[in-house]
């Protein structure tokens, strides 16, 4: 049979068959979340050793803070934190990190390096939304199989306190979710560098250490020199760790809660938009490796 002569009615173009609207296809992104979760589940053994790494970090900072506070009266506070609050800050901070951490920048770097980035360009999806969905799937896995066991170990070994009430806990959780989005969208922006730089390995490593410091994970903001503290008040990083931990410790007055959450959300939106902008700039200049 000659292909050209086959023009039956079934071969009308499929444009009419599927919607062509530009709306977010939630079903697709839920599928990405699910797949990322399943993938993590397949590699779950890898995470059991991670529990010890986190335990080590918490121990080190626990002993450092104990040394700093030693020689002071019990219950004395430094920069507004008592030793007990400081230990709680460290413990809750690392537990939260075990949840909000994401590797989006690294994954984009790998996709660009291997040329697999074209797989996403050939699909009716938005890369940023895909990356965010995958990070959600991974963090959901972490919450269940990583953060919870870590919490059990840390709270049974160190004198860290739970939040004073359920509201504080709820606000901490909500704020950590926003922090997750801020970090994920910063990571997406870093990943965009992979298009112009040949390798972002070094950049990613530097960023990881900087985020630990600037987010307030290693040191609460009041401990920084004045100029840096003021700068950090106006930067997005504190939304990742410091702000959620202030909620945890009940240090944010009730009337300031809406503004604090709104500022975090605003940072999340700004970073997401910046990511979209960088993405559009990057694909316009893209040359796919190989093939």
């Amino acid at each position: 049979m000659q292909p050209e002569t086959v023009h039956n009615n079934n071969s009308t173009i499929n444009i009419l068959k599927y919607p062509t609207t530009g709306v977010l296809h939630l079903k697709a992104y839920t599928a990405f979340i699910r797949t990322a979760f399943l993938k993590m589940l397949a590699y779950r053994m890898r995470y059991y050793t991670g529990i010890f790494t986190y335990l080590l970090f918490v121990s080190v900072y626990y002993f450092i803070w104990q040394a700093i506070y030693s020689g002071r009266a019990a219950g004395a506070s430094v920069n507004g934190f008592t030793l007990s609050e400081m230990v709680t800050y460290v413990a809750a901070g690392w537990i939260a990190r075990s949840f909000y951490h994401s590797n989006i920048d690294w994954e984009i770097n790998e996709l660009v390096r291997s040329g697999q980035i074209s797989n996403f360009l050939l699909r009716p999806v938005n890369l940023q939304a895909v990356m965010l969905s995958q990070a959600i799937g991974e963090s959901a896995f972490r919450l269940l199989f990583f953060s919870i066991p870590i919490s059990v170990v840390i709270f049974s070994l160190f004198p860290a306190n739970p939040p004073a009430n359920l509201t504080d806990f709820f606000l901490f959780f909500l704020s950590t979710l926003l922090g997750f989005v801020v970090l994920a969208s910063i990571n997406f922006c870093i990943g965009m560098l992979a298009f112009s730089l040949k390798s972002v390995r070094g950049v990613i490593r530097t960023k990881q250490s900087l985020i630990m410091l600037l987010s307030g994970l290693l040191l609460p903001l009041p401990f920084f020199p004045a100029w840096l503290r003021i700068a950090l008040e106006w930067l997005p990083f504190k939304a990742i760790s410091y702000v959620p931990l202030q909620f945890y410790l009940g240090k944010i007055a009730a009337e300031k809660v809406p503004l604090t959450l709104a500022t975090q959300s605003l940072w999340a939106i700004i970073m997401l938009l910046l990511g979209q902008y960088l993405w559009h700039r990057a694909i316009a200049r893209l040359t796919i490796q190989g093939g």
Binding site: G22, G290, G291
Partner: peptide, 13 residues
């Protein structure tokens, strides 16, 4: 919107 209507296979990848 366009990619909904096409299929692509790269032999190399």
């Amino acid at each position: 919107n366009y990619t909904r209507h096409i299929g692509v296979v790269f032999g190399q990848r």
